[in-house]
Design a protein around this nucleic acid. Structure first.
Lengths: 152, 152
DNA sequence: TATTTTTCGGATCTAGATATCCAAATAAAG
DNA sequence: CTTTATTTGGATATCTAGATCCGAAAAATA
């Protein structure tokens, strides 16, 4: 139901949210978050264009978040790479600008609205703050933190 | 967010729900519901395979609902053509069969769950029963009823 | 300045969703 | 039995998401 690109974008943003302010490279994010590197490169470009991420080229370059993790919602990420298209008029008759939706599309739009709202209420820091018995993602993030702390 | 195929399937099921028990042809549904006929033909085949619709070939043939409109939910239609894939384990580590999801995928799965529930609570007859100031879909359905009533 | 590391942007490839077309099977009706 | 109307299923075409590759631009460092 959610595109693969959105999944990758959210993983990448979570990775960046564990950062310390120094740029994080595509390669690092890709390895730890298990995202195909060459495609992640495109996803990150979208996030830059959307204004969620700042990039610097060259040696010691990479990506950092523009805002604090507590100020970035899942909805912003979703909309940056794959905007949710809410319904404003019945697709059966696109020419009339009716303010009301038909019963079917009111239901469909309402479902999208629920997702939008849930995503808008969830921030990156909220996701990161949760202690979870399922270790998979947490492990990836911890690994990333260790890599960041080592000057290598 | 919802596939075009799901949209077509729901329109077709609504059309069939206005029927009187005599088979309705692909062409009729396609014209009134403004769905590409040749593609609708494939969508209807999916609905038949899923057991939601019964088909008869030949002259006077067409499609009828297997159950009453009040017993058919939007979720059944969605799942017939494009099943919602709930998350049961973190996609980052598919091998472990963890019962718990990581914080990110718990959120994503929860959003899908809300949609599933909303769709499961909505039946075709519920959608049809709503009076709506926006006429578009209602017009299509009324047109269809008139066509059905005429022996032509 | 030369070297190294990185993002950027364009070209391309692949797979799946969307869509079309047609011959074969099936059923009703003359 | 023939004709007509219909679904079925296969082949195929088109479009978009997902994914890869590479040269050019940019930045740090020696």
């Amino acid at each position: 139901m959610f595109s693969q690109t959105v999944e990758y974008a959210m993983r990448a943003m979570l990775a960046l949210a564990t950062g310390d302010g120094t740029p994080m490279t595509t390669r690092h994010i890709a390895e730890v978050m298990k995202v195909p590197q060459s495609y992640l490169s495109k996803v990150l470009q979208s996030l830059v264009k959307a204004g969620l991420v700042f990039s610097t080229r060259g040696l010691k370059g990479g990506f950092v978040l523009v805002k604090k993790p507590s100020e970035i919602s899942l909805l912003e990420i979703q909309n940056a790479v794959n905007p949710i298209k809410r319904l404003h008029s019945c697709p059966l008759d696109l020419e009339t600008h009716n303010s009301e939706l038909c019963p079917l599309h009111r239901r469909l739009d309402h479902a999208m609205g629920m997702v939008e709202e849930a995503f808008s209420r969830t921030t990156l820091s909220e996701v990161l703050s949760e202690n979870n018995p399922c270790p998979t993602l947490q492990n990836q993030l911890n690994t990333l933190k260790e890599i960041n702390q080592k000057p290598s």
